[in-house]
Design a protein around this nucleic acid. Structure first.
Lengths: 342, 342
DNA sequence: TTGAAAGCGATACCAG
DNA sequence: CTGGTATCGCTTTCAA
């Protein structure tokens, strides 16, 4: 039995080898491969044959060193384990991968310090572009990236108005407004809202949507029925429990995310209230658990895949200089998903 | 107002600049930075000062070209949107990031063809190492990676015995065996098992665990109560419904994953059976929805973060040549998470 | 239409 | 202890 030598990293085939084999110069080989200048059909064929025969594969570092382009795109997110980011990453990868871009993942862990660190790494590594999701990029960081020639697309609530970078957004306000309007028209009685923690990026936007929806129907919002909670099951459960304990009986509870909503359903159930018979509940995000909830949760579905794809497309145009105009701001709308809970 | 010139990519500071500034040779600068040979304390200080002053940052491509090392690790997974992979990626990133490694994400989309394609990309891009999760790597691909000097760690059921690469495993069989034994001892009556789809990697391992657990208690498994379903809510629901329709009344249903289990709970509930009063149900994976289920789901928690960290550590030792012995196989155990459903 | 040769920016060998 | 310089593999002028 033949054993491959340990660490047999054979010398790779280079342009030089191909050139020799085809009886042309390195320059010609390069030109044939990149199409950067016309080459006689006959030599072209000879070069391609040699490439085939020798199994030539270009060296990315040499290329990158020469061209100052890495063919790498960074995806920067606060926490890759949060449901939407993997989908965004996949959407972006779908577009970028087949075009030869490597997708590098950077998780800031929600820390500004880590974020700064990462921005330095990105310029050091000369990524061609960065897709930043989850929070608006600090202007100083954005400047730094811009100055190193890194294209940036930001996808996160609150980055809309920046003239510094292209953005991809989901209009959370509009989505929750529409959902609120639709559901509020269906139920007679007090309407409650359990929002996200103040300080969280998305919280004010979603709350604004709720309020706008109420206003559309000229309904007043009752402050005792408008509260906030951590974006968790426990948060939703205790928020609704508190209202019920206080003797309040909302007929509909609009929640800022699905985990809060599923927690609220639990609270209602513990109180012996039927969902949606006595209390209707809605969420936002359409996480896996929403479909499996009892009853299945009415919610809102943003399209993270499409956000990722869209971001990648905008970025591509920047990286290839296909587009070089002012910052573009793309807004996608989120769709209501009506299930049994409301 | 001062406007930065468009695309003002200023020339980066190089070793040459630092050398000139410090009045030493390029070689010395390089040596100081890498510590690869002793340098007089005084010159050392001068060089470091120059580095500071000029804001020198090394060029990764030049380095990579010279050393044939990219300081990049690839994480290859079949589908980044599946719960566990982001956690694995994060665990690995936690270890690798601070050490200066870039983590590149590759999603094979579950396709062998894409996988082959990716392996080529990895060797082209000269990644130093690859962490492959989700399926055993094809031997031909493994060979190709090995030959290009790419270190590999495989984390997936079914790769244990390979002498070709290090592995990180979770002992699913042991976990389900233990869970089965624990739960079966608690309930009097028929015990059912809803497994994953045959053909799926994990299905036979989990089923083996169930059977072993039954055997431990010298309980016989009833073929009519042992079935399989897609790894989905709908799959679990219809599998249990089918049993109930057939007049079977399992007292405990052990399921191969959480989605099946939550579906089974739904089926029981639709049949007017109390969980866990009349039917107890358990799952596997401890997904978010498990905690939010009604009743909260008893399940098994593998530790994907730790798998990621462990894989990264093994890989590091290979990449740095700290370890160069035969393939190592690390097994982590998964913990039962007892909640109200069983 | 093609070739020769100058870099890109770092490292590592060989001298001194 | 330090300096000069060849080299990694490719792209891209400049000349022919």
């Amino acid at each position: 039995m033949v054993t491959a030598p340990r660490d047999s990293r054979e010398r790779r085939v280079t342009v030089r080898d191909v050139a020799a084999h085809a009886g042309v110069s390195q320059a010609t080989v390069s030109q044939v491969l990149s199409g950067s200048r016309p080459v006689a059909e006959e030599t072209r064929a000879r070069v391609l044959a040699a490439v085939q025969e020798l199994g030539y594969r270009p060296n990315h570092f040499a290329r990158a060193l020469r061209q100052q382009k890495s063919h790498t795109v960074a995806i920067v997110v606060p926490n890759i384990t949060h449901v939407t980011y993997p989908m965004v990453a996949r959407g972006a990868g779908e577009i970028l991968g087949p075009l030869g871009y490597q997708v590098a993942l950077y998780d800031t862990n929600g820390l500004r310090a880590t974020e700064k660190q990462i921005v330095r790494t990105l310029t050091d590594r000369m990524v061609d572009g960065a897709i930043v999701f989850g929070y608006p990029l600090a202007p100083s960081d954005a400047r730094m990236l811009q100055e190193s020639g890194v294209a940036v697309v930001n996808g996160s609530p609150g980055s809309e108005s920046s003239p510094l970078w292209d953005t991809v957004q989901v209009d959370e306000t509009a989505a929750l407004r529409y959902l609120t309007r639709t559901l509020a028209a269906r139920y007679d009685g007090p309407i409650a809202y359990i929002g996200g923690p103040s300080g969280h990026n998305t919280a004010p936007r979603r709350e604004a949507g709720f309020r706008a929806g109420m206003q559309d129907l000229t309904l007043a919002t009752d402050p005792r029925l408008t509260t906030s909670a951590p974006y968790t099951w426990a948060g939703g459960r205790s928020a609704l429990t508190a209202m019920l304990e206080a003797g309040l009986r909302p007929r509909l509870v609009v929640c800022a995310n699905d985990m809060i909503a599923i927690g609220a359903i639990a609270a209602a159930r513990e109180y012996g209230l039927d969902v949606p018979g006595e209390v209707a509940v809605s969420g936002y995000d359409n996480i896996d658990a929403a479909e499996m909830a009892v009853p299945p949760l009415t919610t809102v579905e943003a399209s993270p895949f499409e956000q990722g794809r869209a971001a990648a497309r905008l970025l591509l145009e920047r990286m290839t200089d296909t587009y070089r105009g002012p910052a573009r701001h793309l807004t996608l709308s989120a769709e209501p998903v009506i299930r049994a809970s409301a």
